[in-house]
Measured scan of single mutants.
Amino acid sequence: TTEYTFTDDEEARRAIEELKKRGLTFRYEKHGTTWRVRVD
């Protein structure tokens, strides 16, 4: 499991789109302004 942290909404959304394109399994949660994206 790899975890990424983003504080920029645009950056987080781009990363999420990219992961979807690659067909990877991931989860994300947003805490205030911080996004945590975990890739299995």
Rank of each mutant, 00 (worst) to 15 (best):
T33W: 04
W35Q: 02
T33L: 08
R36E: 07
K30D: 01
E17L: 11
T1L: 11
T5F: 14
R14W: 07
W35F: 04
K20P: 00
I16W: 02
T33Y: 07
R36G: 01
T1W: 15
I16H: 00
T1F: 15
R38G: 04
E29D: 07
W35D: 02
G32F: 02
W35K: 02
F6R: 00
Y4S: 03
E3N: 05
D8G: 05
R14L: 10
T2H: 12
L19S: 01
E18W: 14
R22A: 12
W35T: 10
T25W: 13
R22W: 07
A15L: 14
E17K: 11
E29Q: 06
A15E: 04
R13L: 13
R22E: 06
T34D: 05
K30W: 04
T34Y: 11
R22F: 06
K21R: 13
T33P: 12
Y28W: 12
R14K: 11
D40K: 09
K21I: 07
T7Q: 08
T5D: 04
L24R: 05
R38D: 05
E29C: 14
L19H: 01
G23I: 01
R27I: 14
A12D: 01
H31S: 11
T5E: 09
K21W: 04
E18I: 11
E10A: 11
R27H: 14
R13H: 11
T34I: 14
D9M: 10
T1M: 12
K21V: 06
L24D: 03
E3S: 05
F6W: 03
T33K: 11
V37D: 02
R38K: 13
A15S: 04
E11M: 10
E17S: 09
A12Y: 07
Y4H: 04
I16D: 00
R14G: 05
R38S: 14
E29P: 00
T25I: 12
K20N: 05
T7D: 11
D9V: 10
T5G: 02
T7W: 08
T25C: 14
T5S: 05
D9Y: 13
F26E: 02
D9S: 08
W35A: 03
G23Y: 03
L24N: 03
G23L: 03
A15G: 04
Y28Q: 03
K20C: 15
Y4R: 03
A12T: 02
